[in-house]
């Protein structure tokens, strides 16, 4: 084996790595935002909208990501939707991830006791305030492990983007392999690259979970120190 191939193409590989990181972060951000919106709408909307969302979730969950991506990128133009590989990749990851995140958020919402919500309603809080101030802060702590888990899974779906020519790590390294016939070296490098990313993600997740559980058991966020004028006379 000759790993010098890797050092010779270090520049390309580095930019591929960064591209993977960027599509991952972008895709997760889109998926999280869309997932939260879907979950909130599912909570409050009428039966028709809920049914439509249910269908959307089922369809996305039942079809492979690769097929969805092909449909978006190659099929898009027939619907008047011409996307660059990068845009198609990000939107594809966002759509694919949104339904899984939506399900995680939905479990989170239902885990908050109804009584806490009723108390908030009786105190005149709006539904938006209840979601933002009562439900989300509490449920984030509970669903964080699931969120981190699916974020890692979504990271490992990013190689699929290489098929629509997004120049991310897999695209670059398989290219280098084909060019130099160093297939094994490049595939091993690929494994190492994704391992580093997944490891980063899980470390970040562990750190967040630790913070969150401290927050829940109320060690970290000691209540604010009082300013003198705030103390009751």
């Amino acid at each position: 084996m000759d790993f010098s191939v890797l050092t010779e193409h270090a520049g390309e590989i580095g930019s591929g790595f960064l591209m993977t990181l960027w599509t991952w972060i972008g895709g997760v951000a889109l998926a999280l935002a869309a997932g939260l919106v879907i979950a909130v709408i599912q909570l409050s909307a009428g039966p028709w909208i809920r049914g439509a969302l249910r269908c959307y979730i089922e369809v996305i969950r039942a079809t492979p990501f690769l097929v969805q991506l092909f449909l978006l990128y190659y099929g898009g133009p027939s619907f008047g939707l011409s996307l660059s590989p990068m845009a198609a990749g990000l939107i594809g990851l966002g759509l694919y991830g949104s339904v899984y995140f939506a399900e995680i958020f939905r479990t989170g919402f239902t885990s908050i006791p109804q009584g806490q919500i009723e108390a908030a309603q009786m105190l005149g809080l709006t539904s938006r305030q209840i979601v933002c101030r009562v439900q989300i802060p509490q449920m984030l702590v509970l669903i964080l492990p699931a969120l981190v888990n699916f974020t890692t899974i979504l990271g490992k779906e990013t190689p699929v983007l290489s098929i629509i020519t997004v120049p991310e790590l897999t695209f670059v390294l398989t290219g280098v392999g084909a060019e130099t016939f160093a297939y094994v070296e490049t595939l091993l490098a690929l494994c190492v690259g994704y391992f580093i990313l997944a490891e980063l993600c899980s470390r970040l997740g562990q750190w967040l979970e630790r913070r969150a559980s401290l927050y829940l058991t109320q060690g970290v966020r000691t209540p604010r120190t009082l300013k003198p004028q705030e103390t009751a006379a």
Partner: peptide
């Protein structure tokens, strides 16, 4: 105003 059997304070 309403007071509930389970208090329903916000624990966070």
């Amino acid at each position: 105003g309403m007071v509930f059997q389970q208090f329903n304070l916000w624990p966070h």
